[in-house]
Structures are given as C-alpha cells and as structure tokens.
Design a protein around this nucleic acid. Structure first.
Length: 572
RNA sequence: CGGGGCGUAGCGCAGCCCGGUAGCGCGCCUGCUUUGGGAGCAGGAUGUCGGAGGUUCAAAUCCUCUCGCCCCGACCA
C-alpha cells in the first residue's frame, strides 16, 4: 500500500486523553479514533492488526477442530431470562427495546444464544463433541471504560463454545482450547502466562486466564518463580499457616483509642505491628450481615468470601448497619461480646495469632490481648484473604510472586450450568436424555492488539511482532530522484510478489518526517532507499526492534526480508 | 455511583480571575528554495469558544441548567 492512498493520520503530539502506552500510540499512529467513551473506530492500519490477530485465532481454532459460525449481536431478553442473566448481568448489559416494546440486549457473550441453537439442532451424542466459535463485536457497558482498546464498551472478541456428552469429553475439549490458546498467544509474539482463575459472571467449575505480563495490566497474577503454580489474585489459594504464635496468653484489657479507626492509626497509636491487629469487617449478603476477621496486614478477598457463602456478591455493611450490629461506629468493631448474634468467619491466619488487638464495640476503644476461644468464638475458618508476595505456594513449590497482567483470554469448563437452565439435552447411546456438558472460551482480539503494544514499544513508538504487524516492511524512499523512485517502485513490486506486505511511504516528505512516522507505526523492518546509498550500490534494511541497519544490494532485499520474516528467529 | 479535572481551529494549548474586534505553536493550502532524523521564506484558509437559558449596551469570560470526555476511587473500618 502507498501511504498517500491510505488514511494514516499520525499525530505529532500525544493526545491529551490518553495515558497508557497502547492507547497513546494507537491514537498517534493513526490506528484508532474515539467515537464515544470506550467506543472506537478502527482505521485502516488498526484494522490490519486486528485482522492479523483474527487470522491467527481462526487458524488455531480451526486446527483445534472448532468451526466458525456467526451469531447475531442483538438477542431477545427471553433467552437471558431463561438463565437468569437478564437480571444477574446487571448494568453491564446493554439493553434496548424494539418498536414493539420487546426487550433486547447487545450480546456481551453468547452462551444463551449458542445453547438455544444446539438444543434445537443437536439431538444425538453422535454429533458430539461440537465446538463452535465466532469472531464478533461484543458489548459490555463497563463501569469505567479506559485505556483505549484495553477496556472498551464495544470490543472484538472470539468466543467459542464446546458441547460434550459427558464430563470426560468436556475436559478433553477444554484441554484442546487451552492448548490452542497457548499457540495463539505464542504466535502473536506475546509474553504471557496461563493462570488459574475465578469464573465470575460466566460461571462454571474450572477456568484459566491467559495473562499478558505488563505493568499496565489491571489484573494481578500470582505465581511461583520456579514452580508450576500460577493463578490470578482473586483465585490464588493461601494455605493455612503451619506454625502458630508461641507467645503466652496475656490477660485481655480495654484501652482508649480516641478517634483511631484505621489499621495505620491504631497500630501506630498503640505501637504494635499490623500483624497483631485484627480487622473486624461486617459484610452483607442478600440474606444476612456477618462478621469477617482478618489480620491487619492482610486484605479480604471478596471473591473467595462470596464463593464460600454461595452468593453472587458480598458488600461491606453500611455505617448504619455497623452501628446497629456492634453498638459502635465504624472503626471500633470487634468479635468480643458482640451485642448482636451474627455469624463470625475468620481467615486461617487468625487461628495462629495470639494476643490480638481488636475493636471494643464501643466508641474510641480497642481491646488488647484478645484471644481465640478464651475471649471470642469463630464459627468458621477459611481462606479469605488475598495472597501476598512471599506467601508459600499452595502447591508447596516455593514462594509466591505478584505481577500485573492483561487478561487477553479465558477458558471455562462450564459443566451443565447453562444446559440445565436451558434444558439442552442430547440422547446418549442408551437412548437416555443427558444434559450437554459445556465449555466456553474467549479471546479479546482488540485487547490482544493493545496488549501487544504494551509489551512491544519504545520511546519512539510501536515495535510490532512480525505475525501481527500491519505491514512487514515500511519502504522509505528518501528523495524524489528518479533513481530512488525507480528503485523503490521496483522493490515494492518484488517484495509484493514474494508475499511480503509493504507500506510504501510515497509522500514527498523530508527524511526525518518519514523516519519518525515509521518508528511510530512500528513495522518490523524499514527499507531505506537514498541517493547516497544507491550511488554505492546499496539500500538499507533496518530492524525496528534493535535499530540494526544492514546495507545490501537491492537484489538481495527480497531474499533477506523473506528469511527474516519466515525464519525461526523473527527477533530481528 | 463518589471525588477531581477538562471541553476555545485537525492536534497541543493560551485567553476566562478583572466582560469590550478570538489568539499561539504544530498541522493544512499556494508559491519558491530545500531534501539522510519532525526544513526556510513569503502568502493564505480554518472557529456554532460543547449545548441551552439568563445577567448586561456588550459574554469564550459572570450566573443557572445541561451534555460530553479524562483521571482517581468505589467502601479493608
């Protein structure tokens, strides 16, 4: 393609609206433009990258035995009411009414639609396993869209759904997708890690997320450096402590802590370690108010709490609820002599702590040397906290490290969650109706493109991995001289014949402008043709990533570029 | 949803406090010169100052309402 025939509105300045690297560079490189918050137009250059990612996804999905179809973006509320997600999905679901006042939504994911299709069309186990996928625009009315394509309200996703006759088959389908995802993200040139994950709004039993490791990631990944354990923070298990505090029990006593509410205030006022303090948090579920005890230096993991309680979500109780339940304002709640009968849950670490500092359930007072069983009772111990760096691995293979990651894909083993609610049954070999066992598998295509930039850029711009680059070669003739122009035209033609994608900067611009735009756009290889070089019989081939320049005769260009692109080491 | 910030030319911004002809840089258009890392000179075009209402002789500027966008937070007691 010639630059003059392509809409590539590069920007010299950073747009004020963009903070993160990928957002800024995609705007500056003329790849995307914003239409509304979290809603973007893909310009030709951006779309080329999207198509590259889609191509890799499509190849690997097909190779894994999945078949492509395309479902509608709009779907009727009835399907969503069958599974309860019309209500459960909440405000994230884009809803609208048609002219007859019937409720519809824009699909955020398609379990309902695909399950409806399969229950109608597939009756026999003979037709299973079945895995259908699509690549499509999805809609989620995010609470806070941000970072350009990273968290949009409209985004491109590949979603796949597998149907099996039994659990064993479903696990096999899951494993195939897991393997396919490994290949996809590897081929995209990303440094990533598959981690155990919670199942969230989608539901199901088993799940892995594929995380691109990057500082700007919104998710936290927990893993062992040398071991095999990796999970996201929501999921990461924390084993109970193996040693308990050997300190002798001290007599409990009340101390005045005027206006000291937070962990920091109380610990510095009493000159104690946060490890001695116990936070007494009041949580509300749909049904009850309950108490959660957590050590001062730990954080409650609400996903774990909700899962333990078997509810969708838990919220912290309001100050009023706290007052009513504990007889004290927020900041002075404690487990000792609670006025109201409530369930008390505690993180495992509480069991191993002695002589704890807790709220006194009266204003401006705490209790010191509170001890389990002697002074208060706990109804249930559980793993309720977030893992921290240095915690032992739940697999016993070392200590945990934390890192930030961008979630680019997630696979779920759903079991019969949807098939049961929607009565998607198939006949087995004995003629018995059985619920289809499902899995679902998503890849954020547009987010993958953004994540690739987060991981591959420098101060000057993007450095595309070869497989998803919008063009392989950026052809930069530096003058309008006949010799340079003819050589450029010739090489453009030769490279094109060899199947190499070339962006030909045919603008009558100064060298600096072309170089800067080329660095910004980030094609892996820059082919520079200037009068000086030609006079000496060579052109220059520059590797964007390393800045290395090779001078070579024009006749060797096609062969060299081909070997770099197709060869095993594309790390040029 | 709460807090903060911002809407003025394609982009980045100034002007607003203290009302009085709407500016700067880059970009864009024309011409000449230039041509290996964002050229020089000369000439030129470009704005419902986010929108609505109000105050005033007069509003980008003051007041009210409203829309949009960005950032942080969303309860760890």
């Amino acid at each position: 393609m010639r630059t003059t025939q392509m809409l590539i509105p590069t920007l010299r300045d950073d747009p004020g609206e963009a903070e993160t690297v990928s957002h800024r560079l995609m705007l500056r490189a003329g790849m995307i433009r914003k239409v509304a918050a979290g809603v973007y137009t893909y310009l030709p250059l951006g779309l080329r990258v999207i198509r590259k990612v889609e191509g890799i996804v499509r190849e690997e999905m097909n190779r894994a035995g999945a078949q492509e179809l395309l479902m509608p973006i709009a779907s009727p509320a009835e399907l969503w009411r069958e599974t309860g997600r019309w209500d459960f999905y909440g405000k994230e679901l884009f809803r609208f009414k048609d002219r007859h006042e019937r409720d519809f939504c824009l699909g955020p994911t398609h379990e309902e639609v695909i399950t409806d299709l399969i229950r109608r069309e597939v009756r026999s186990y003979r037709h299973l396993p079945l895995n259908c996928y699509q690549i499509q625009t999805k809609f989620r009315d995010e609470i806070r869209p941000r970072f350009g394509l990273m968290r949009g309200r409209e985004f491109i996703m590949k979603d796949a759904y597998s149907f099996d006759k039994d659990e064993a088959g479903a696990q096999l389908s899951y494993q195939k997708m897991y393997d396919a995802y490994q290949r996809i993200f590897t081929r995209c040139g990303l440094t990533f890690r598959a981690v155990e994950a919670d199942t969230g709004l989608i539901g199901g039993d088993v799940s892995h997320e594929f995380m691109v490791l990057a500082e700007t990631g919104e998710a936290t990944v927990v893993y062992t450096d040398h071991g095999t354990y990796a999970a996201n923070l929501e999921r990461a298990e924390v084993p109970p402590p193996t040693e308990s505090d050997p300190a002798p029990l001290q007599p409990i006593k009340a101390v005045s802590t005027p206006n000291k509410r937070t962990v920091e205030e109380v610990t510095s006022f009493l000159n104690i370690s946060p490890r001695q303090l116990v936070k007494t948090l009041l949580y509300k579920t749909g049904q009850e108010v309950l108490v959660v005890l957590i050590r001062g230096d730990h954080e409650v993991n609400e996903v774990k709490l909700a899962r333990l309680l078997g509810v969708n979500e838990v919220t912290l109780a309001s100050p009023l609820d706290v007052q009513v339940t504990t007889n004290a304002p927020v900041g002075f709640a404690g487990p000792v002599d609670l006025k109201t009968k409530v369930r008390v849950l505690a993180d495992h670490a509480i069991k191993a702590t002695r002589n704890m500092v807790v709220g006194a359930n009266q204003p401006d007072a705490h209790l010191v040397n509170a001890n389990l069983d002697r002074d208060f009772k706990v109804d249930q111990f559980a793993d309720l906290r977030n893992a921290q760096a240095g915690d032992p691995s739940p697999r016993g293979d070392g200590r945990l490290t934390l890192a930030k990651g961008i979630e680019v894909g997630q696979v779920f083993l759903l079991g019969t969650k949807y098939s049961k609610k929607m009565n998607a049954t198939i006949l087995d070999a004995q003629g018995q109706e059985r619920l289809a066992v499902m899995g679902c598998y998503g890849i954020g295509v547009s987010r993958t493109a953004a994540a690739a930039i987060e991981q591959n850029h420098d101060a000057k711009g993007i450095i595309w991995p070869v497989p998803i680059a919008p063009f392989h070669v950026h052809l930069l003739p530096l003058s309008q001289s006949t010799a340079v122009q003819e050589q450029a035209a010739h090489l453009y033609d030769q490279l094109g014949r060899a199947g190499i994608e070339v962006l030909w900067d045919d603008r009558d611009e100064r060298a600096g402008v072309k170089f800067n735009d080329a660095d910004l756009i980030g094609a892996p290889f820059h082919l520079v043709i200037g009068d000086k070089g030609l006079a000496q019989g060579h052109v220059e081939l520059k590797t964007r990533k390393t800045g290395t320049v090779s001078k070579l005769p024009p006749s060797e260009v096609v062969g060299t570029v081909s070997s770099w692109i197709n060869g095993p080491s594309t790390g040029h």
